[in-house]
């Protein structure tokens, strides 16, 4: 059997807060193929972010196995997780999280300078459509532009995996759509494996694969053989 690019096998994440045990992930199992666009969808509190955090090496799982590109992530040491984040993962957040004191270009270069084979920062920014805003500080950019910088920053590391947590959550409809289009393009043109978390079910047609999460478990997995370009989706 061919090994999937990303595999979650019975992954459990339990938080202990005093005497309360919370199972944010309760036996999650799914797989994602390389170069595909996957949407993880579910209501608030279903455990989507927990799954993404474990996949991104920001958090470890309580039990189960996570493998990425044949490498087991679960059970890594702190240092190994940092290396994993450094070389293999690109993150995009709802609130951009740019360094306020660095220009757009510098923010991208910041990520690029810690990688082994970074992409050209300037070109990456041109690619996300910010060729004329290179030397602007985050505060001088609109929300959509800031998110583009964040995407460029993630891409410049040339990661194996691009993880996006509600990337359009803080953006208006039109801008949100542009960002999703950019992510979809990135997947198609660069062959990048992209995983997007959203609570918006309307987005599911754009994905190659949709993973529905409910109460810390995978409730449904769908494969779209004919993903729709995001421009054609209305919500």
């Amino acid at each position: 059997m061919e090994q999937a690019f990303i595999r979650f096998e019975e992954v459990v994440k339990e938080y202990v807060m005093g005497e309360v045990h919370i199972r944010a992930a309760d036996g999650v199992t799914f797989s994602v193929e390389k170069g595909t666009f996957t949407v993880i969808v579910g209501p608030s509190g279903a455990g989507k972010t927990t799954i993404l955090n474990m996949l991104g090496g920001m958090d470890s799982c309580t039990s189960g196995r996570i493998t990425v590109d044949g490498k087991e992530i679960s059970g890594s040491t702190r240092r190994q997780l940092t290396d994993y984040r450094r070389y293999d993962i690109g993150f995009v957040f709802q609130f951009y999280n740019l360094v306020q004191n660095l220009t757009a270009l510098e923010n991208v270069e910041l990520a690029a300078q810690i990688c082994r084979h970074p992409l050209d920062a300037r070109q990456t920014l041109v690619d996300v459509g910010l060729g004329d805003r290179l030397n602007n500080f985050p505060a001088q950019l609109s929300g959509g532009e800031q998110q583009r910088v964040a995407i460029a920053r993630a891409l410049a590391k040339d990661p194996k995996l691009l993880l996006c947590d509600e990337p359009t959550g803080a953006l208006d409809y039109v801008t949100g759509k542009q960002i999703l289009a950019l992510l979809q393009d990135t997947c198609r043109k660069r062959g990048m494996t992209v995983i997007v978390i959203t609570h918006n079910l309307a987005l599911t047609p754009m994905a190659d694969k949709v993973i529905h999460i409910r109460n810390g478990r995978v409730s449904k997995e769908e494969i779209n053989t004919q993903p729709v370009p995001v421009e054609e989706i209305e919500w």
Binding site: T82, R86, F91
Partner: peptide, 16 residues
């Protein structure tokens, strides 16, 4: 805090 967390997510080592 936020800036530091961002750096950590980007894969900066603890020392960095």
């Amino acid at each position: 805090l936020r800036e530091l967390a961002t750096l950590k997510v980007l894969g900066f080592y603890d020392g960095e």
